[in-house]
């Protein structure tokens, strides 16, 4: 893998993968960093780099979540929690905190499909290859999740206006 490919993949997928990993664990940045480093250590470039990145991120994030749960159980402390989204510019209709909260309330299978499709730019076929299952199943999860999100976000006032 040359430097241009690495830069492109990092710029294109780092944010999406971080958001994707954040739904599983707290140290999402570390997980994404390890995944990109692991991609560079591959002897051959994966045929579908986006799918490979999402699958690797998912596996590592789940492992990280288990480690965090063990650590919390033994030490009684958790890592610092970070926001999922940057603060939006003025005039932006959706509130970042509300969107984060609404996403967290979704079932995991709907949430990961929404993140992979919306911010990862993956098609449902690619999502099916990366996560398993069929493209139709993931499309159905996606539409159900989006409907739930819209209902939640449009009905409830923004969290930032509450304070």
């Amino acid at each position: 893998m040359n430097a241009n490919d690495a830069t492109y993949l990092l710029d294109r997928y780092q944010a999406a993968l971080t958001l994707y990993a954040r739904q599983f664990c707290l140290a999402a940045e570390d997980v994404v960093q390890e995944v990109f480093v692991s991609l560079c250590q591959q002897s051959t470039m994966p045929a579908n780099p986006a799918g490979w990145l999402f699958r690797a991120t998912r596996n590592r994030a789940i492992s990280q979540r288990r480690a965090e749960q063990r650590r919390q159980k033994h030490e009684g402390q958790s890592a610092e929690r970070r926001e999922w989204f940057e603060k939006p510019q003025e005039g932006f209709t959706l509130d970042a905190q509300s969107a984060e909260q609404a996403l967290q309330q979704l079932p995991e299978e709907q949430r990961e499909v929404i993140i992979a499709h919306l911010w990862g730019g993956m098609t449902f076929e690619e999502i099916a290859q990366a996560l398993g299952g069929s493209a139709a199943t993931h499309w159905r999860r996606y539409t159900n999740g989006i409907s739930s999100l819209r209902q939640t976000l449009e009905s409830a006032p923004p969290i930032s206006q509450k304070h």
């Binding site: 944010a15 999406a16 959706l94 970042a96």
Partner: peptide, 12 residues
């Protein structure tokens, strides 16, 4: 609208 939200990332 949802897609316009920018996820936070680590150090590039």
């Amino acid at each position: 609208k949802l897609q316009a939200l920018v996820p936070t990332t680590g150090q590039r």
